[in-house]
Write a protein that binds this DNA or RNA. Structure first.
Length: 283
DNA sequence: ACAATTACCTGTATGC
DNA sequence: TGCATACAGGTAATTG
């Protein structure tokens, strides 16, 4: 499940190889993954255009291409992988052999390399929009602050929590309040902060807010350093797995002993999401 | 305005 | 062995 650390890792992978490369042709095998604009305009745009620098906002990849931005939402199982060419399986253009199943878009690049978008469950979407209309035409316009930006302070987090009576985990998952945190990191951040996911946000005190703010940055930074978490099928922009799954304290460990107190971790359903926490260490 | 719920998807695991 | 069901969960749309 690509969350902020995974999308940032993909962004860094692509930043190393994509800028300056020209697009030769495009294969669109599943038009419904294109949310904007229409299929004809989308397919007609790319040939001859040059990739710019990849950016990120929350869980969204923002790939500059000529005067537009390709906004990619990977959702659950989406993958964006750069395949160097023309060696190996590269260089065959749109008719390349060995393309994995669920390949929905393939950009064939000058020199034989390719960029492929795959998504087993087809939740993922791409938007091709003018640079100045990203916020207007894509969900990026509805996102809350970036948790790793300097202006995301404990005070700012306090304002987000204040007066809201939903469980604190539900707020962490709400992309319009804080951008980039998904189910894995919400559980890990709350464990690191020692706060129960069930607590009403309004009842999180000032001292705990500082701890929660610290935990969010600590966990997200460390997860980026380890190139993301691979529990199912996440891979970075070169097709490599992440390493943070070895650091998980609670996610996916319901019933297993807490690494801090040794007691059994609890698994429950919160807002339709699987949730793991330690009832002893998180209050 | 806010909060809760549902639809969208398919591979994997489990129960009978 | 085979079939049905539950589950994984990010986001948009819908309902309350």
């Amino acid at each position: 499940m690509p969350e902020l650390p995974e999308v940032e890792t993909i962004r860094r992978s692509l930043e190393a190889v994509l800028p300056g490369i020209e697009i030769a042709e495009l294969g669109l095998f599943r038009p419904e993954v294109v949310a904007w604009p229409g299929m004809e305009e989308f397919t007609g745009f790319f040939p001859g255009k040059v990739w710019g620098r990849p950016g990120r906002r929350g869980k969204y990849l923002l790939l500059e291409v000529a005067d537009r931005v390709l906004v990619v939402s990977l959702r659950m199982t989406g993958q964006l992988v750069f395949l160097p060419g023309p060696a190996g399986d590269g260089g065959d253009g749109l008719w390349a052999h060995g393309l994995p199943p669920h390949t929905h878009i393939l950009w064939c690049l000058a020199g034989g390399a390719r960029l492929r978008f795959t998504d087993q469950r087809r939740f993922g979407r791409v938007y091709l929009v003018p640079r100045e209309r990203v916020e207007e035409l894509t969900p990026v316009g509805k996102l809350g602050p970036e948790p790793l930006d300097p202006d995301f302070t404990p005070q700012r987090l306090g304002q987000i929590l204040a007066g809201r009576h939903r469980p604190v985990k539900a707020l962490l998952l709400d992309q319009s309040l804080v951008a980039g945190i998904g189910n894995i990191y919400a559980d890990e951040i709350l464990f690191a902060a020692g706060i129960s996911p069930l607590r009403s946000a309004a009842e999180v005190g000032p001292e705990e807010t500082v701890r929660l703010h610290w935990a969010a940055r600590e966990i997200l930074d460390e997860a980026i350093a380890r190139r993301g978490t691979t529990v199912r099928n996440y891979q970075d922009g070169h097709g490599q797995a992440g390493g943070f799954q070895e650091c998980l304290a609670v996610y996916g460990r319901g019933g297993e002993p807490c690494r801090r107190c040794g007691g059994p971790l609890r698994h429950l359903r919160l807002g339709g999401r699987g949730t793991c926490y330690c009832p002893c260490c998180q209050t």
